[in-house]
Design a protein around this nucleic acid. Sequence first.
DNA 1: GGCTCATATTTCACTGATGAATTAAAAAGG
DNA 2: CCTTTTTAATTCATCAGTGAAATATGAGCC
Lengths: 174, 174
Amino acid sequence: MASLGNCVCMMDEGVDRLSEALPGLPADKAKLSRLMLMVGSRMQEELEHTLKPYRLNHSEFLTLMILYSSPDGSSTPGELCDYTSQGATNMTRIGNALVGRGLVVRAASEQDRRRVRIGITPSGRRFVQKMLPTLFPRLSAMFEGFGENDRRQLGRLLRKLADNLDRLDEEMDR
Amino acid sequence: MASLGNCVCMMDEGVDRLSEALPGLPADKAKLSRLMLMVGSRMQEELEHTLKPYRLNHSEFLTLMILYSSPDGSSTPGELCDYTSQGATNMTRIGNALVGRGLVVRAASEQDRRRVRIGITPSGRRFVQKMLPTLFPRLSAMFEGFGENDRRQLGRLLRKLADNLDRLDEEMDR
DNA sequence: GGCTCATATTTCACTGATGAATTAAAAAGG
DNA sequence: CCTTTTTAATTCATCAGTGAAATATGAGCC
């Protein structure tokens, strides 16, 4: 019963029952919203599961990948918070975890002594080069049966959704 | 910089840089995977934000909605765990929270005395009837500009993704 | 019937993440 | 200049969720 397919099926029935009782409910949008949440969190679980052998969680992995793929291999906690959508508090913890494993180093910035520079180490780069390719097979399996067109459509729809969410956030402030 | 649009844009650049260095990387799938995670977690934040005034979090809301939309308004912790993809431990906490607010009641099952029946109260029903419609406008805004066809496509692609994730999970056990 | 095994829920210890307060340094503004 | 304000990072207290162990009941099996 823990299968996503079953959960989706039950969600469909639940929303249908609900929409009979509440005529105002936008049923198809409610279903899409639930679908996004269900599939999104299952993908996150799947990722965290495959990262576990490397003793990384999602946010630590993401932070490390950003450093790895950044032109000079370094950044600051504040920037990393923006890029990863993590809070500053958590970024301190992530830094501690990665520094503790020798994957990154912290150094005081000379231009602005409030800032800290966090840079990936040679050991961190080797670690990424070793572990990253092991994720590829799962990534391919996840999108098996998605042709060129499906991938383009999904990308388009998700980006459109992202735009709408940004608009919602802006309106919230006002 | 906390806008999803910017994050998506930076993600695109990061994956592109990465895929130059690592030829084996399935770049478009990596981007779709990242997109799903980013949009999914932003939608969750958005939901939790709108639930905050009602002092509910996502899993508590979901549990309450399942009880509300179930034919007889009751279930057991074990079933609710399956339906919500939550662990048993957390379901105990959710139950405590909802019982504490008088939205649901716990009762020992007579058929199987290991089981506990959790049922929504009249007060719980009134609460849902009051708060649920306030979520509709945000839901509509979220899918603004999504025509009939876009909605059908997105639903189809997400369900397909769900099937693939189930297949991945099965293979994992073996 | 009594023994073992499986199932349902809860308790406890811990992890990951957040918000509020703290510390320190830079920028702004008389 | 020197005071005030803003910005950057960290610490501390707390919350939500997990895994392992405990508790209690039911089911299967001589």
